[in-house]
Amino acid sequence: MEYLIFGSAVIIILILLFILMQKQLTNLREQLRRSLENSDQILSQRIETSGKVISDVQKDLVRLEESNKRIYEVGKDISSLQDILRAPKLRGTIGEFLLSDLLSQILPDRHFSLSYQFKSGERVDAIIRLGSRLVPVDSKFPLENFRGLLEAKSDQDKRSYQKRFQRDVKGHIDSIARKYILPDEGTYNFALMYIPAENVYYEIMVKKDIWSEEKSIVDYSMDKKVIPVSPNTFYVYLQTILLGLKGLEIERDAQEIVSTLGSLRGDFSRFKKDFDLTRRHLYNATRCYDSADRKLQRFGDKLEQLEIPPKAGVESDSSQVELEAASTKREIETDEQGERSI
């Protein structure tokens, strides 16, 4: 009877544990389902956002083109832009202002800094934080000889100013490469040279030099890993960088999802081990219960045989019954010893 009570208690406890683990498994499945749904929603939102950004870029380009037309019309009313920008310091201040305004319009504040100082003491006009590294951006540009090139009348004067302008630009490119391309301080192995005027950018990037046999400014800048950008091309660069930053955010979110799934996989593995252990315990408890039940049944049968009164003419059978009872007792003792040894 004690074995039966004990076995019943064990079975009840194991059933409760099984129900508890079933509930935990259900909760884990629900959490996994919610995580996957959230992941799908996040990815869908990111893709939708990227489509909207591309559409916004197209709209902004249209607005920028309209703005350029208005600026061109306003520029017709200015007698001489060169006179306004004759002072290098004023010209540099205006370039920095245009660069700052363009950066603040497109990039979040945390992804760029103005007037960034390196450990060497050199200070660049702006840096763009792209991932774990920096993209230096210089907005100072030599325009004195370019102004002379525009005002030159004869081919000889144009040739002279052209050579001086190329020498100034190449020297400025060397200065940018030497001062700001510093991979040891976290920069990429290239820098951007911001040219605040489209006509100057055209002179450098598009117009061919018919007088000079030296390497072109474009080839020279590419060799030095200094990329010239105008307001229009820099706008496109920044939009591309912005898409890249959003891609990095999506990648970080995906890594977090993968990490969560890995954690859930570990929890599920541990739960499976506990579930297998419980199954083994239930199996052993069932075996013990069945064995005890059989012993109890045999013992009850023997007791019933001993309690039957002897009939006339069969007194000799009592000795046989006693022998069978002794044999049953020995069998029970043998089974108990075998179970203890297990």
Rank of each mutant, 00 (worst) to 15 (best):
I12G: 02
G266H: 15
D219H: 11
F97E: 13
K311L: 09
P108A: 11
E65R: 06
K207F: 11
G148E: 12
Q105Y: 10
T278K: 00
V258M: 11
K246Q: 14
L4K: 15
E339F: 10
V135G: 00
E213R: 14
S79N: 14
L248A: 12
L238E: 13
I181D: 09
L192I: 15
S139I: 01
E322K: 10
V57P: 07
D293M: 10
Q320W: 15
T286R: 04
G171I: 00
K273V: 05
K153S: 08
A152G: 00
W211D: 15
Q320L: 15
E315V: 13
K153L: 10
Q45G: 06
Y3A: 08
E304F: 04
I181G: 10
A126K: 03
A191I: 09
E322M: 13
K329I: 14
K69E: 10
R167Q: 14
R133T: 06
K246D: 11
I127E: 06
S120D: 12
I12M: 08
I13S: 00
V74L: 02
E251Q: 14
V124W: 03
Y194G: 03
K272D: 12
Y289A: 03
I195T: 04
K208A: 13
T240I: 11
Q82Y: 03
L81T: 01
K140F: 00
S8K: 12
L16Q: 05
D138E: 15
Y289G: 00
T240D: 14
S44D: 10
S39D: 12
L61W: 02
I173M: 08
I78N: 04
D293H: 04
N68D: 05
I42E: 12
V226R: 08
A254L: 15
G300R: 06
E331S: 13
D125C: 05
E339H: 08
G313A: 07
A325T: 09
I181W: 12
D184P: 04
P136S: 07
E122V: 03
I176V: 15
D168F: 13
F141N: 04
M205V: 13
M21C: 00
K59T: 06
E30Q: 04
K23Q: 01
L296T: 12
